[in-house]
């Protein structure tokens, strides 16, 4: 458990689903563009197929991303998009991080 010190309380309140470097990177890419496929995220984030799949499942379960499967010329393609809930979560996370840093530096 994080310290109960009032000044550090925002750290304890951070969204742990987002507060992971890999998931944060995934969400940042998804926030920058409209939608991407699995290969794109693998290339950009530098995760293995299994790791990326696991992080995406976590994000999908949190309702932050939506995952769709489609076939293009009989080849499967997994499309990932940031949901409105995911966008709000990133915004909240940014504000919380800013508060944490301001608190620590003030």
């Amino acid at each position: 458990m994080v310290s109960a010190d009032k000044d550090l309380q925002p750290i304890a309140d951070l969204d742990r689903t987002i507060h992971s470097p890999a998931r944060l990177m995934i969400l940042a890419y998804l926030a920058a563009v409209d939608r991407v496929d699995f290969i794109f995220l693998m290339n950009q984030v530098g995760l293995t197929r299994g790791n990326l799949s696991s992080h995406l499942t976590t994000l999908e379960e949190a309702g932050y991303v939506s995952i769709q499967k489609e076939f293009v010329d009989k080849v499967p393609r997994t499309l990932i998009r940031l949901t409105d809930q995911g966008r709000d979560a990133i915004q909240t996370y940014r504000e919380q991080m800013r508060t944490v840093i301001d608190e620590l530096l003030s």
Binding site: F38, I39, R49, S53, L56, I67, K69, V75, P76, T78
Partner: peptide
């Protein structure tokens, strides 16, 4: 730089 990965397309729950 980007070699073709035949399996990657299936992605999550593939």
């Amino acid at each position: 730089r980007y070699p073709r990965d035949e399996e990657a397309g299936s992605g999550v729950r593939g």
